[in-house]
């Protein structure tokens, strides 16, 4: 693999460099810090700046939650969080796609679009899984058609009628075509 600048950084460096600058360098920079004004903090009151920012990652952390499932991790952080969700670990084909997506940073479209792709694949996986457990799709409940029937009947029926029409027309068209082909084949 190509050598990239990322590979030569060995964290933690940020505060080391900042502290070195503050200790040795800034006195030689004319006017350093002269106009600093802690009250000019546009993040207040959303954020009560306490300087904790400059502790970087050296804070008291909770014990690490035991990891007995697969947790995907953003490559923009060094480790998994001390506490994490255990809902629906990656599985099957969608899981493989997700693992690939997590090779890319949150700044890339590849990361997010690949995850969306995984989500769509997951839906199919979910359907197959349901069937395996004898659960059939039930749009009346799952898609909330019951609610449409109750509160939006005319529009709902209209939409259903159009959908049915389009599907029937499609089926007719396909069967007609294949019947035509069959006739040709027979003649």
């Amino acid at each position: 693999m190509k050598n990239v600048l990322e590979d030569i950084i060995e964290p933690p460096v940020d505060r080391k460099i900042a502290n070195r600058n503050m200790n040795d360098r800034v006195q030689d920079i004319p006017g350093w810090g002269m106009d600093a004004d802690p009250d000019n903090d546009p993040t207040y009151p959303m954020k009560h700046s306490t300087g904790a920012d400059h502790e970087r990652l050296n804070y008291v952390k909770a014990p690490q939650q035991r990891q007995n499932i697969e947790v995907l991790r953003s490559i923009e952080r060094p480790n998994i969080t001390r506490v994490f969700g255990t809902s629906t670990p990656p599985a099957g084909l969608s899981g493989a796609i997700r693992r690939y997506a997590y090779k890319f940073s949150e700044a890339t479209a590849t990361h997010w679009m690949t995850l969306i792709l995984a989500d769509r694949v997951d839906v199919i996986q979910g359907k197959l899984n349901d069937l395996k457990h004898g659960i059939f799709p039930n749009p009346w409940i799952e898609r909330g058609w019951r609610a449409e029937w109750k509160h939006n009947r005319p529009a709902f029926l209209g939409r259903m009628a159009v959908t049915t029409l389009v599907i029937t027309a499609g089926i007719l068209l396909i069967t007609r075509k294949s019947r035509g082909k069959k006739m040709l084949a027979n003649s």
Binding site: H48, L57, R73, T81, R82, F84
Partner: peptide, 14 residues
């Protein structure tokens, strides 16, 4: 610690 509780650093690995 700076009251940005919606932006915790130890709650979301993903």
């Amino acid at each position: 610690k700076q009251e940005l509780y919606g932006n915790c650093h130890e709650a979301n690995s993903e």
